[in-house]
Write a protein that binds this DNA or RNA. Structure first.
Lengths: 395, 395
DNA sequence: TTGAAAGCGCTAACAG
DNA sequence: CTGTTAGCGCTTTCAA
């Protein structure tokens, strides 16, 4: 292997004194002293051009598939590029094309539940498919921090942003985001015509309640929260609808509200609320809980009253928090929120807007995404289900 | 307000036909039709220069603090910049300076525990302080995906990367990362001289066991896992050390191993393991559990044997998974792993390497980071602690 | 089918 | 203290 001017041999390229072209086809001993400090200079388009004996234009065309390049030239360029482990510098490309290939992901919270992780995961996998990358930013619910972070995202020329909340809510989109394609996740802003995706709350409740009804339950309680949110309203409405559709009358006494503050130990509150519900003599055969933490409270309350789950009481939750649902004994049947799917939907919607600037993905109003139920062991037929159709009042 | 050539009046600037300079000092009616498709064109450095009546160089200097600019000029430039809501285009700046201001964050998993979130949070907060942004990427433990993602990161010219694992382990750093400053989190590679930070496993166990000893416990079990990992070894060693330091002999029968597979419902396994331990007649007054999920299993096993926590059995976990620790009744005292701090440390280390390329932050070998204990209600003095110093054998 | 050359918006020599 | 200017590495007319 010579040292002279750079030539393209048949598949083998020379190490150069001039450029940073280095061919590394052999398996090498493991490098135990990696570059420290600055990143190693990577081969650029002109290095490839030189090595392939063509112009940078041709390399660009060959790599991107733009323009007309003969098949052979293209093959050669590609081969050389691979040889030099060349990949276009996305920064330079972004500057020239006015497209960074980066999607900003703004979330209000990332550390307390696995929701954010699943959202990010879905968004990322969709982004990867389109050759884009995510820039994740988290405000921990501090509006000032959020502002700074959005500014940073804009300064980095993100092409679009996903604005995600961890709990389904109505919001006012930050004004800064009015200047850039934005899609909302788990949130909606009636004043802004931006695509938004949220869970279909009613369907969640219907799925849960229908599962219970199918197993023969007629006396189904709903343990919900006091706070007035879209999730609370939607799930309650879905509960009512499913009950009525089955021809069972709504018994308002079966609706139990726990006053849970955000982030507080929901389980304890739920345990107390549900225990006092049982104390009043209520004996539903099943409970549909607003979320898994409340369901965990129901487990604890049931233990206090010597009620066995699922023999004496079937329980369904919402969230599929594996940490809880998997670890409870018996395992908790619960409805998994479509976080992953919403993440995917969001970047798909964003890229759609990017491609055709007149496009407005999704329905008018927030797109409602379906959930699915995860069955574990907390649901069974009520004892004597066969015998007591339309039994005694439950309370 | 005229339309003519651009002039700088005392604080008010004209709307221009030529550029995109738009002054917007008035509070405006909320824009209900935000730009769709492409991002709105933002003002550039030359817009500011024009409006301020100086050269771009001066603007650059004024904004960055580099070079010499008179205080007045600087003030004027800054004012105009604010007026035009100018912020330097980081892409252009990156291309010119060969510094993207982006740190890649590679994690093996992000959706199943809150660990990743806390790591990201810590990393991000440190990054923000230094004007950098995080590009988070997640492989879901797929090596091929990971490779692609690291390549994408490199193509985006990230200045450094944080390579994080969710569980403390020894790894082989991907070769691609040998060419760029990298710091490892929750992982170490003996073959590579890269800074690494891991939890101080022994200290975790010592803190937990010392807490129990301080409360008068002398018969302290350790419920651990069978898999041989740095965490398992370290915590076991710490347990032994703390017990011995207190002058209590090690009783190997008090060390219980649960064969938990990664990601499985650890609690069930732990429940069975601990129940059979109790069945053999063991009556420790306290258990130190490898993690919170095992602790939850202990709660369940204790219920089976009518042992009340903490009256009959004190329990300490590790991880501070709020979903579990907060929701158990009684609340679980547990050791919180320093994820947030490790995240911070990692970007601090990375930026240090960036600033002085000869720097090697941290100790030789992985830096061990301290944890702290979160006290809830699962620890109490053993019944009759006062009376039975050096009591009967525990099993 | 290929190549030369003009920038994308910024920073950093260097000159005045 | 301020301004002119040459690129950073790439994409994309436009011309050959």
């Amino acid at each position: 292997m010579g040292d002279g001017p750079i030539h393209a041999f048949s598949g083998i390229y020379a190490t150069s004194q001039l450029g940073r072209i280095v061919v590394d086809t052999l398996t090498r001993v493991r490098d135990t002293t990696p570059a420290r400090g600055r990143a190693a200079k990577r081969n650029g388009i002109s290095d490839v051009a030189k090595a392939a004996g063509v112009s940078v234009t041709t390399v660009s065309h060959a790599m991107s598939g733009q323009g007309q390049v003969s098949a052979e030239t293209r093959a050669k360029v590609l081969r050389v590029a691979a040889e030099l482990s060349y990949a276009p510098n996305r920064i330079a490309s972004a500057l020239r094309r006015q497209r960074s290939g980066i999607i900003g992901f703004v979330s209000d919270e990332i550390a307390t539940t696995p929701f954010a992780g699943r959202l990010v995961l879905g968004a990322q996998s969709a982004a990867a498919q389109r050759g884009m990358l995510l820039m994740v930013v988290n405000s921990n619910r501090d509006v000032l921090v959020e502002r700074d972070q959005i500014e940073a995202l804009l300064a980095h020329q993100v092409d679009a942003v996903i604005y995600a909340k961890m709990y389904h809510q109505q919001i006012e989109l930050p004004a800064l985001l009015h200047q850039i394609p934005t899609v909302l996740v788990n949130a909606f802003d009636p004043a802004v015509a931006a695509p938004a995706v949220v869970p279909d709350e009613e369907a969640i409740a219907e799925a849960a309640v229908e599962l219970l009804i199918r197993d023969g339950h007629r006396s189904i309680a709903h343990l919900t929260v006091a706070e007035d949110t879209p999730a609370m309203r939607g799930r309650l409405a879905g509960y009512r609808r499913a009950i009525q559709r089955a021809g069972i009358g709504i018994d308002e006494r079966l609706i139990v509200r726990a006053s849970v503050e955000r982030g507080a130990a929901a389980t304890g509150i739920a345990r107390v609320a549900f225990a006092s519900f049982l104390e009043r003599g209520a004996r539903p055969t099943a409970v549909f809980c607003f979320n898994d933490q409340l369901a965990m409270g129901v487990y604890q309350a049931a233990a206090l009253f010597d009620l066995r789950i699922p023999r004496d009481l079937s329980v369904v939750g919402v969230d599929n928090l594996e940490l809880i649902a998997d670890n409870l004994a018996p395992g908790l049947t619960t409805v998994a929120l479509p976080h992953y799917e919403m993440g995917r939907w969001a970047v798909d919607a964003a890229t759609m807007m990017l491609e055709r600037s007149d496009a407005m993905p999704g329905e008018p109003g927030p797109t409602r995404m379906a959930s699915h139920i995860i069955e574990r062991e907390s649901v069974a037929q009520p004892v004597g289900a066969m015998h007591r159709a339309g039994g005694a009042p439950p309370i």
